[in-house]
């Protein structure tokens, strides 16, 4: 059980990369990349997890003296998600342009780079 969560993170990264390799559609490749990136979210949250600890948001029920999970990696996960969203937007815009220029979004049918 101790390695299970880390295993999920590694599995997501590899299965996302597999999707990119096997992709026959640029939109599918972009989504596969998002799957691979979500492996890093799981990894970061695993690193910061502590058993029987609360979320790092204090309030009337959770006093600052209680044990919480690591907020630093959670903040980095947020950064990670933002970067993933921006990368997805740019790649999808590129896919639109590729379709416009080449008439296809199948990476196997894109033969040469054109300016």
């Amino acid at each position: 059980m101790n390695l299970y969560a880390y295993g999920v993170a590694g599995w997501l990264l590899l299965v996302g990369a597999f999707g990119v390799v096997r992709s026959a559609n640029l939109v599918h490749a972009v989504v596969s990349l998002s799957v691979a990136q979500s492996g890093t979210y799981v990894l970061l949250l695993c690193v910061g997890y502590q058993r029987a600890a609360g979320a790092p948001v204090f309030g009337s029920t959770l006093r600052p003296s209680t044990r919480v999970t690591d907020p630093v990696v959670q903040a980095m996960t947020l950064t990670d998600i933002v970067v993933s969203a921006t990368v997805t937007a740019l790649l999808l815009a590129t896919a639109v342009q590729v379709h416009k220029q080449q008439g296809t979004v199948d990476p196997n049918r894109l033969s040469a780079l054109k300016g």
Partner: peptide, 18 residues
């Protein structure tokens, strides 16, 4: 992963500072 601190352990130095 095998060399990392155990999952869910007490050891979170950044948390203790943040």
């Amino acid at each position: 992963f095998l060399g990392m601190p155990a999952f869910g352990s007490e050891d979170h130095p950044y948390r203790d500072l943040a």
